[in-house]
């Protein structure tokens, strides 16, 4: 009757047992942003237990590690602030007033912080050391996710409500172009000279050439294609589909789907643990999933309502 409920409670039990039995030599910390709770929870992967909860926020969606890896920036869109958290301890170091931050990322050279404001239709460019607002661009209906060219010259933003991708020249501070890509584009990734874009209104990721602005091919993963992440070793691209509830392994050279994992609950953002596990937030199930790429086993942990952003902080060996 309630398949996701049954799966989740079983999964949670299995995970707790597995974690207790395995008792790895080191335990990582996982930060999860519960967007409608709203709260940030910190999970100890050794026990699967919540070890810290930061409350009194409004609507946390995305997070990013600072270039020096000393601060975790957590964007609270309705709260109009970014929290700066020490990733090793979970201590809130400071809170900065920022206009409606939804998705955010640093340029690869670490000099700029780009913030997309989904509900206010703007993209803001900040000096990464402030953050101090340098420029604001009107960006249409629902600017969503951000990617950069490796030389930090260009930012690419999906505009969810318009079905387009926008390119901003960060050096000249101007909008270069805007190109149609498909209904409700969401996640975006720069990959070997191409942009891979999740088309949420369809069942595929679009592969766009930013030079020609043409979609050259598509990668079918399942309905509601959402976000895509490169594994730290570069050997796999991991893509989620929220409607069909799938996580897909994609071969980075050929962009062929290598394997599909059925993960009920609307998988969204992904983070990678040093032990190779893939952690994903399940937006509709209030849980995070741990996917073992070797065995394909999936287990879950209860975290809060509508979990979105996720980050794994490796811990030193104990």
């Amino acid at each position: 009757m309630l398949p996701c409920l049954r799966h989740a409670s079983l999964g949670a039990g299995v995970l707790a047992l597995a974690l207790a039995a395995a008792a790895p030599a080191h335990a990582d910390l996982i930060y999860v942003l519960n967007s409608t709770d709203p709260s940030i929870v910190k999970i100890d992967t050794r026990t699967g237990e919540e070890v810290q909860r930061i409350d009194s926020l409004r609507e946390v969606h995305h997070l990013v590690l600072s270039p020096d890896r000393k601060e975790l920036l957590i964007a609270d869109s309705s709260g109009n602030e970014i929290l700066f958290v020490e990733p090793a301890t979970g201590t809130v170091l400071r809170r900065e007033r920022i206009s409606n931050p939804y998705h955010l990322d640093f340029t690869p050279d670490g000099r700029l912080l780009v913030v997309a404001s989904l509900r206010r239709g703007q993209v803001d460019i900040y000096d990464a050391n402030g953050p101090r607002l340098l420029d604001r661009f009107r960006a249409g209906n629902k600017p969503s996710h951000i990617a950069f060219s490796p030389d930090s010259r260009f930012a690419y933003i999906t505009i969810q409500g318009d079905g387009t991708v926008m390119a901003i020249d960060l050096q000249e501070r101007r909008i270069l172009w805007q190109a149609n890509v498909g209904p409700e584009p969401a996640g975006i990734l720069w990959h070997r000279g191409r942009l891979i874009i999740g088309i949420m209104g369809r069942d595929y990721f679009a592969v766009m050439n930013p030079e020609t602005r043409q979609v050259e091919s598509t990668i079918r993963v399942g309905r509601g294609a959402h976000t895509v992440f490169a594994s730290p070793d570069g050997k796999t691209l991991w893509a989620t589909s929220r409607v069909q509830s799938r996580i897909a392994e994609i071969e980075p050279d050929t962009l062929q789907v290598r394997r599909i994992h059925e993960v009920p609950g609307g998988p969204d953002c992904i983070a990678f643990a040093p032990d190779g596990a893939v952690w994903a937030t399940l937006r509709w199930a209030g849980r995070i999933a741990r996917l073992d790429p070797a065995s394909g086993e999936v287990s879950t942990i209860r975290v809060g309502r509508s979990p979105h952003g996720i980050f794994v902080q490796p811990r030193a060996i104990q």
């Binding site: 309630l2 409920l5 409700e184 949420m200 609307g266 209030g286």
Partner: peptide
């Protein structure tokens, strides 16, 4: 949370997807 998610996934999301209203 689970009941909300189940109703959303089973009934609403398919409609939103079919009508290009996923945003």
């Amino acid at each position: 949370t689970q009941l909300t998610g189940w109703i959303f996934e089973a009934f609403l999301q398919p409609v939103l997807y079919a009508t290009d209203l996923m945003n």
